[in-house]
Amino acid sequence: MKRFGLAAFDDQQDDKEYEGISSAVLQRQNNELKEQLAVFQERLVGFAKKHNSEIQANPEFRSKFVRMCLSIGIDPLSLFDKDKHLFNVNDFYYEICVKVIEICRKTKDMNGGVLSFDELEKGYFRRLNVDMGDLEKSIDMLQSLDGGFEIFEIRGKKFLRSVPNELTGDQTKILEICSILGYSSISLLHANLNWKPFRSRAVLNEMVANGLLWIDEQADAEALYWDPSWINVLHE
């Protein structure tokens, strides 16, 4: 039956058809846009490679270029090519520095501001093609920020501290014990360092208050104090 006027649009069947058509159109537009964006990103990388020397020579051009990359979703780190010296090499390290600071800020509430280099490299930088050497060089540069960041070593492993309070000798020794089993305790400290229980308890509780250690009260004999960097180690 043919209907006229507004009534002609009342038909359920038609509604469904229009729905189908409109979603198909939207889908197609979506795909086209995605394709265009991919092509554009590819061209941009090509452009960066070709006009490498100009980008290097002109800082204003460079900063505008990097901003443009960011706004269409290209991580500037992925544009850098160490061997071909795309941009200034130092820019590559500055970019890593920024990432490191971001990560430190993000994880501070979890680990009290102490992060191992291993965790940084495995957790964040491996997929960006940044190796340990690059990371160490960048973090060296961070030290010129005067006191905000410090590198220290525990049993040959490097750690980065991003909170301004310095670790005391006692705290460092406890972290050293933690780096073996993941935790320390009053009796472990007594057995290894011959500390008196009240000394151990004071330092351990202070470290829990600072967020450097997490307390575990459900172990068999005594409370254990865990290093939060073991969260990611336990599953490996």
Binding site: D109, A209, G211, W214, D216, L224, I231
Partner: peptide
Amino acid sequence: PPIYSFPPLYTRQPNSIIRRQQ
């Protein structure tokens, strides 16, 4: 995720910032 196997996650942490994270 791995944090589920981290023993201190099961003890209420005394530091309030850490506890919020916990």
